[in-house]
Amino acid sequence: MSKSVLVDITRCIGCRSCMVSCKSWNDLPAMPSEFSNNWDSPGKLSAETWTNVSSYVLEEGDQLKWRFVKRQCMHCNEPACESACFTHSFVKTKEGAVIYKPTELNQDYCVGCRYCMIACPFDVPGFQWDKTFPYVQKCRFCYDRTKEEGLEPACVTACLTGALTFGERDEMLALAQDRISKDPRYIKHVYGEKEYGGSSWLYISDVPFAQLGFKTEVFNRPVTEKAIPSLTWDVLKWTPYIFVGWGALLTAMRAYTKRRAEVHNEEEMYGPVDPKK
């Protein structure tokens, strides 16, 4: 029963109610903002802003198109952050949420190394740079609301236009396919279905994803569809074999060459340096 949200970009009007409700439910402070060329405010995710709506003005012939993209943690099926963390401070729950400091047991095991931030393919986690003892923070998929209160995530509840739909992941995928196939305006792609092994948040759009700041191509090649933890594990799994094998080889070589080696009295060989010379 992995939960999911389907974001239908064609239905978003950019009202940012989701941002307001996220801040108020999670008790996050407001961030000072600056004037800029677009309507994005504050413009990027951070430790205090877990969701953010970006605006895109697209020119198509003589027409202008407005599109708005809500961003937050994608809640990957196999999260890179979870695999990168060496204190289990991230957990992918069976409900689909990827949460930081998840259980009573490891409330405060985070070391603050920020490897999760290097690992995340979507650059989501934010760090409390101004705190003496900072935490990493990001969207929790309203784990408390959905699990304990039986509600939808705050952003979904706040959404006026039905751009966000909350439900089981397979149902959301079916819904996405249904909308795409019935309406020719849509791009025939569900973003989040396969990217980096798939994620709990899914997007459909009538504008190519690349034009809306989605990571579809990197260095002129499509983004990987392999889950990142599996790549790391492909290397890490060899560790015990290398440990034993390399150790055995070294021991054998040391024993073999020792028989031929001369005996040295190391104490006679080295001496302290006299700097006064």
Binding site: T87, N106, V111, F133, W233
Partner: peptide
Amino acid sequence: FNFWRPFFYWGFHSVL
């Protein structure tokens, strides 16, 4: 102050 935690909490799937 948490630097010793990885000794006791085994995140062996992490390269770190």
